[in-house]
Simulated assay, not measured.
Amino acid sequence: MHIQNQPQSRRKYDADFKAEVLKMLANGQTAAYIANALGISENIIYRWKSIDQGGKKVLVQQGDLALENQQLKDRVRQLETEREILKKALSIFSRQT
């Protein structure tokens, strides 16, 4: 048996299909799930997403990341303080008289 190598033709997707895929992605479904469900490549979904954002990958500014990181650290510190207060209150109220 001799199998000939035939070049694979590229599938073309219309704008409505692409928009629907991007909508699914925006609604929280993973690219892997969408790709598996629709029988398309995960990479093409990421490519469409990149093109949809103006042809450029949107990069988050380092300052924005630093600000968010500091806010999260402050929140963790606040929650740790609240937890310590609750631990102390629990030990005070649970003492045997």
Rank of each mutant, 00 (worst) to 15 (best):
M1Q: 10
H2K: 09
I3Y: 06
I3W: 06
Q4D: 12
N5F: 02
Q6K: 08
Q6D: 08
P7K: 15
P7S: 10
P7H: 10
Q8N: 12
S9I: 06
R10D: 08
K12M: 06
K12Q: 12
Y13K: 01
A15Y: 02
A15V: 03
E20P: 01
E20Y: 00
E20S: 02
E20D: 08
L22N: 09
L22S: 12
M24S: 11
M24V: 02
M24W: 05
M24Y: 05
A26H: 12
G28L: 03
Q29C: 07
Q29N: 11
A31K: 11
A31F: 04
I34L: 13
L38T: 01
E42C: 07
E42G: 10
W48P: 08
W48L: 08
K49H: 15
S50A: 13
I51V: 15
I51T: 13
D52M: 02
Q53S: 13
Q53P: 03
G54S: 13
G55W: 12
G55D: 12
K56W: 06
K57M: 13
L59Q: 14
V60T: 14
Q61E: 15
Q62R: 14
G63D: 14
G63N: 13
D64H: 06
L67T: 12
L67D: 13
Q71K: 14
L72M: 09
L72N: 05
K73A: 12
R75I: 00
R75K: 10
R77S: 09
R77E: 13
R77C: 07
Q78I: 02
L79I: 05
L79R: 08
L79C: 06
L79F: 05
E80G: 02
E84N: 04
L86P: 00
K87C: 00
K87W: 00
L90E: 08
I92F: 09
F93M: 12
R95Y: 07
Q96Y: 10
T97V: 09
T97S: 09
